[in-house]
């Protein structure tokens, strides 16, 4: 038997993701430096990012609210390894509960010294207050917020 071949391959499948009406409104808001959440009138939770339905109560949501650009860092990680095709390290990610929201959401943490991994627990803290730093140019993307900065 001959040596088994390896055939190189690459997929380039283009997608056009439907964001749906809820995320679309959220992204529109970011353009204006507004962060929209949506309130479930049954369980009173405010969801950021907003969504069509409350998963718990299983009702359609329509009560839009604006939440603050400040919030609490629920937890954080720091990426040190370069993963092919993914952003260049090092960078920090946080789950952030914005003031006025019931649950956290994902974003970058910025203006943090990431050069020494062993120092991370001293630099970032669970429960720390953070604030959104906006991009000058905003086009209706989650990256209209550049990152969240610890206060």
């Amino acid at each position: 038997m001959s040596k088994p071949f390896e055939i190189p391959g690459k997929w380039e499948i283009e997608y056009k993701y439907a964001a749906g009406p809820y995320i679309s409104k959220f992204l529109e808001g970011l353009k204006e430096k507004k962060i929209f959440g949506i309130k479930c009138n049954s369980c009173k939770r405010v969801y950021v990012p907003p969504r069509m339905f409350c998963e718990r109560c299983y009702v359609e949501l329509n009560d839009w609210v604006e939440v603050k650009e400040t919030g609490t860092l629920e937890t954080f990680i720091v990426v040190y390894r370069k993963f092919y095709g993914l952003p260049d390290p090092p960078y920090a990610l946080g789950l952030i509960k914005l003031d006025g929201a019931s649950e956290s959401f994902l974003h970058y943490l910025g203006e943090v010294d990431l050069s020494r991994p062993e120092k991370i627990p001293e630099i970032l803290k669970q429960g720390q207050k953070v604030i959104a730093i906006w991009n000058e140019e905003r086009k209706g993307s989650i990256l209209d917020i550049k990152y969240f900065k610890p206060l």
């Binding site: 439907a18 964001a19 749906g20 009406p21 995320i23 069509m52 339905f53 299983y58 359609e60």
Partner: peptide, 15 residues
Amino acid sequence: NERKTYYENSFIATK
């Protein structure tokens, strides 16, 4: 153009 996500449609149909 005003398409919903496939899972928003799942919610609507199931509800």
